[in-house]
Design a protein around this nucleic acid. Structure first.
Lengths: 333, 333
DNA sequence: TAGAGTAAATGAATCGATTCAATAGAAATC
DNA sequence: GATTTCTATTGAATCGATTCATTTACTCTA
C-alpha cells in the first residue's frame, strides 16, 4: 500500500537515516546517494507521513485559524491573507468556524490541540482569554486576530475599532444627522464594544443622539430584523450605523422593501468594506479595514513566534480604519 | 510540559494499556479504575496526541475540503454544509483554497496526504482526475464536489449544470431576447463546459444567438473586464448570462457605471444564487443551487466511504438547479 | 478443593519518521 | 606509514498512543 521511509531505504540500498537526511539535510548526503534515494522516492511515490514526522520532532507545520464566521467576506479576506503568508513559509492552515459560539470554539480548540498545531490565530468569540492560556501551556503559540491583547501577554493584530466607530459618527454628524441609530452586536464581542465606545465618544463630542439597537448575531438576517426595532422608535433617526456590512446590507434590503429611500430618507453606513459593498442596491458607505494585510500580519507574527520560541517578544500591531465613501450616506434633508 | 498517556498511567497507578482502554473501550475497565484514571486525566489536563493516536491506527479523523475559491459565497455555503456534517460525525475539516490553480491544488493535496487525512472532498481545478488516483492508491477516499464522476469510479455530488445553462437561456428566450451574451470561464472547468453545453442546447432549440465572452477567472473583477468585450460586440446583445454570480455582479457594476439601465437596456442573469444576489444594485436573477445541502451530502458520502471501506459502492448524487427570479431580467424592449 | 471460566489489568511490540552517537572509509598531515 | 581529520553512512532509541497475547485475581462448578 503506502510506501514508508523504510521501503525507500530498502529500494535505494541505504539506511533509513540516510533517507531521512535526504529529506531534511540534503547537504550532508553525497550526490550519488542523493540521486539514488530521490529516484527511489519518486518511484514509490513516497510522501512522508506527517504524523510520524512530527511525532518525533514534536512540531507540526500546521496552524489553526479560528474565525467567527467564514461566510463573512471580511473573514474570508483575512483567511486569504493568512493562507498566503503561511503557505509562503510552507505551513498548512486549518480553517475553523466558531459561528460566534464559545461551545463550537472550544470544540475546535480541542481538535486543534489534538492535531498538534504549532500555533493558533483566533478571533475569540468572547472577551475572556483564559481558555487560550491552555494552548500556551501546551506550547502552542497564540496570536489574536482582529482583537487587541489587553494585558499584552501575546501577539495581536487589530484595527482601531474605537477610531472606526468615531469615524462613522463623525461622518454622519458632518452630514447634519442629529439622531443616529446604532445597530450593534453583543457587548461581549470586543469589536462591538470598542466600536460602541467610539460611537459614544464621537456622539458626545458632535452632540448627536444615539439610539442603540442590539442584535445577537452579525449577519444580514439580523440586520433585516433590526429594521423592525428601528421603525418602532418614537423619534425616527435619519441615519443608521451598523457594526458590520452584513448587518447593513440586511438593513438596506429591509428598508428598501418598506419603500424607504436610501440615502434620501435614511443614510446607512456599514463596517468592514467587504467586496460586495460597492455592488449593493445602494453602494454602501463603510468603514474600511485592511483585511488581507491583517491576515498576513497575523500569520507572520504567529510563525515568527513559533520559530523564535523563547526569545520571542510579543507585539501588538494595530492598523487604522478609514472611511470608504459611497452613495448610501448623504446630507440630512 | 504536555502530559502524555504515560504520565496519566503513572499518576493513576495503572498501565498505559488501561489508560488507553479508558479512552477507547471504557466498558472493559472496572468502575473504580475508570474513575481513578479519569481523575488523573482531568488533573493533568491530558489531551491525547492525535498524531501518535492515528499513527498506530493508521486513520485520522480529519478530511480535506479543496475548493476553487473560498471568497465565493457559494463555496463558503458548501463549506458550512461539509463542516456541519463532518462535525456531527466528529471529524475535523481542513479547508483549502486552490484559487483555480492546479499548482496550488497539487500543493494542498500533498499537504493533505502528509496530514494523513481520511478523505478528500474536492472541486478539481481541471477535468483530469488522474491526480486524484494517487490519493486513492494511498487509501484516501475521494468524493467529487460540484462535479460528476465521469467514469463512476468514485462518489460525486453535483448539480445538473447542463440543465442550469438551459434554464437560464430558456428564461431569457421566454422574455423575448434573441441575442444573448454568455460570459463563461475556461472550458477546462467542467461546470463552465457543462453550463455552456446547456446554453448551446437551449439556444439551438429556442433559436437565439449566443455571443460567448471568455474570462480566465470567475470573480467580479473579471466580470467588470468582460463588459469591455461586451460593449465592443457589433450586434449588442439585450441580455447577459454569467457563469456565476460574482461575474454577474461585476458585469452589473460596470454596466451601471457606463449608465446602462438594468434590466431595461440589458437583462442580467447569474449562477449560484449567492446570499448577496437579492441585495445587489438590481436584485439579481440567478440559477439557484442547493449549496448547503451539496456540502452535507458530499461529506456524508465521503465519511460513509471512509468507514465502510471495501464494501462501499460509489454513488452519484445529482441535484437540480432552479430559477431564482428577481429584477435584473425583464422582457426585451 | 481442584479445575474451568471470566473479568480486569498488564506491558511489550508496533506505527513511521527523526535524531544522534558510533563507525567506516577516504583524505590530509606529519 | 602512522595518525589525525573529515565526510558519508549507519542503525538503535525515541516520540505517544494502540493493540493484543498474556498474566493475575476472582468466582463458579462438580
Amino acid at each position: 500500500m503506502t510506501a514508508s521511509l523504510r521501503d525507500v531505504a530498502q529500494l535505494a540500498h541505504v539506511s533509513v537515516g540516510t533517507v531521512s537526511n535526504v529529506l531534511n539535510r540534503p547537504s550532508v548526503v553525497s550526490p550519488e546517494t542523493l540521486e539514488r534515494v530521490q529516484k527511489a522516492i519518486t518511484e514509490l511515490g513516497f510522501v512522508p507521513n506527517g504524523f510520524a514526522r512530527h511525532l518525533r520532532s514534536g512540531f507540526s507545520r500546521t496552524i489553526g485559524l479560528v474565525v467567527p464566521d467564514v461566510a463573512n467576506p471580511f473573514f474570508t479576506e483575512v483567511a486569504r491573507g493568512v493562507e498566503d503568508a503561511a503557505s509562503r513559509r510552507d505551513y498548512a492552515v486549518f480553517l475553523c468556524n466558531s459561528d460566534e459560539s464559545t461551545t463550537k470554539e472550544e470544540k475546535y480548540l480541542n481538535a486543534l490541540v489534538a492535531q498538534q498545531v504549532r500555533g493558533v490565530l483566533i478571533t475569540p468569540a468572547d472577551s475572556k482569554p483564559q481558555r487560550l492560556d491552555i494552548l500556551l501551556d501546551r506550547g502552542i503559540a497564540v496570536t489574536l486576530l482582529d482583537r487587541e491583547s489587553k494585558n499584552r501577554n501575546r501577539c495581536s493584530v487589530s484595527v482601531d475599532d474605537i477610531r472606526g466607530g468615531e469615524i462613522a459618527i463623525e461622518h454622519l454628524a458632518s452630514l447634519g444627522h442629529k439622531v443616529i441609530a446604532w445597530v450593534n452586536g453583543p457587548e461581549s464581542i470586543p469589536q462591538c464594544a470598542d466600536r460602541g465606545l467610539g460611537v459614544a465618544r464621537a456622539a458626545n463630542e458632535k452632540n448627536v443622539t444615539i439610539k442603540t439597537i442590539r442584535v445577537p448575531l452579525m449577519n444580514s438576517d439580523q440586520g433585516a430584523a433590526a429594521v423592525k426595532a428601528f421603525l418602532a422608535l418614537e423619534e425616527l433617526p435619519t441615519a443608521i450605523f451598523c457594526a458590520n456590512d452584513l448587518l447593513a446590507l440586511g438593513v438596506m434590503r429591509a428598508l428598501l422593501s418598506e419603500g424607504i429611500k436610501i440615502p434620501d430618507q435614511v443614510s446607512i453606513i456599514g463596517y468592514d468594506d467587504i467586496a460586495f459593498a460597492p455592488s449593493a442596491a445602494v453602494p454602501l458607505t463603510s468603514i474600511s479595514q485592511p483585511a488581507y494585510q491583517l491576515g498576513v500580519a497575523a500569520a507572520e507574527l504567529l510563525l515568527a513566534e513559533c520559530e523564535e520560541a523563547a526569545m520571542h517578544s510579543h507585539q501588538q500591531v494595530r492598523f487604522q480604519p478609514r472611511l470608504a465613501l459611497r452613495q448610501s450616506t448623504s446630507a440630512r434633508n
